[in-house]
């Protein structure tokens, strides 16, 4: 995926040449024809067959579960007022489907400010089929491989450096909405940036790549794949090293701290004051009336 993207980037710089269009067409046709003859060996034909049947299965699922809002061909449906009932899915890529369906956000239970994370409605195979089908609607980001978002392959020094980089990138790019610990934050008009703690690394990567709902898309030009990986590494590190200072009270900042200062601190101390005043000097069991 990364190689494809960078190749496309290099190609796009040549786009403005006078003969570029014709040349590109030639190259494309040659490549497609060449590939067809070179790759269509019996083994890969079987694979293609599999893919085709997966896409077909995905299409059927799509027609049942998604087309009401997204249109029978994923073209999106506009309401009478010109708003989106469901946006077009052309070009959103398999990553978007894997994120939205895999976290239960889609299918939506009801229209609202934002699709909340909820119980997942489709099995893994069905989600994969839906993703494969939507990927055929137009080119878009593919589902990332584990090597894209895991730092397991690095040595420990490089891992530590990745976490440090990721922390600074997280504070620069993510905390404004998702809070300093990824606990989430409010967005205008009932929207919200959900918590990113305890979310699968794959889904965080996909969210960065596809920009679901009001979230901006962090393309590979904004945050390189390595930078995305570093951010995820930092978040996983937060999960592992939680609670250095004690109970974090929801990691929501000073509002929660103030609540605890009043309820635990002042509440407790006033309770002690009542207790002290109730136990006054006495020589018998009966309380002395002062």
């Amino acid at each position: 995926m990364r190689i494809l993207n960078s190749a496309a980037g290099r190609l796009s710089r040549l786009r403005r040449g006078r003969l570029a269009g014709a040349l590109l067409l030639m190259v494309g046709l040659l490549a497609a024809g060449g590939l067809w003859t070179a790759v269509m060996t019996p083994a890969s034909a079987e694979k293609t067959q599999d893919l085709a049947s997966q896409v077909e299965e995905g299409r059927k699922l799509f027609l049942v579960g998604c087309s009401t809002c997204h249109g029978t061909n994923g073209e999106g449906i506009l309401t009478d007022r010109g708003n989106n009932l469901g946006p077009s899915l052309v070009g959103v890529g398999a990553a978007a489907v894997d994120f939205q369906v895999g976290t239960g956000r889609m299918p939506m239970a009801q229209p609202g400010a934002q699709a909340p994370r909820k119980d997942v409605a489709y099995s893994d195979e069905e989600t994969a089929a839906l993703a494969a089908y939507v990927a055929t609607l137009g080119p878009g980001p593919a589902i990332p491989a584990e090597s894209d978002y895991s730092i397991d392959g690095l040595d420990s020094e490089a891992q530590e450096a990745a976490i440090v980089r990721g922390g600074q990138l997280f504070l620069t790019n993510c905390t404004a909405c998702h809070n300093f610990e990824g606990s989430g934050g409010a967005m205008p008009n009932g929207g919200y940036a959900p918590t990113v703690r305890g979310v699968d690394s794959k889904y965080i990567y996909e969210a960065l790549l596809t920009g679901p709902q009001t979230m901006p898309t962090f393309s590979n030009g904004n945050l390189t794949p390595d930078q995305k990986r570093d951010i995820i590494a930092y978040l996983n590190n937060l999960n592992d090293s939680a609670g250095v200072g004690g109970f974090g009270m929801g990691s929501l900042g000073p509002v929660a701290e103030g609540l605890f200062a009043w309820i635990v601190g002042i509440g407790g101390l006033v309770g002690f004051a009542v207790w002290i005043a109730a136990h006054t000097t006495r020589s018998s069991k009966k309380k002395v009336q002062a």
Partner: peptide
């Protein structure tokens, strides 16, 4: 006891101040 059990103002999570950064839930003390 509160200082020992309840984490307050985890500055290591906020990181050093940098005018280009901000976090959701930026509130003053109560």
């Amino acid at each position: 006891i509160m200082g020992g059990l309840l984490g307050i103002n985890p500055i290591w999570k906020y990181g050093p101040y940098d005018p280009t950064k901000v976090t959701a839930g930026s509130q003053p003390d109560w």
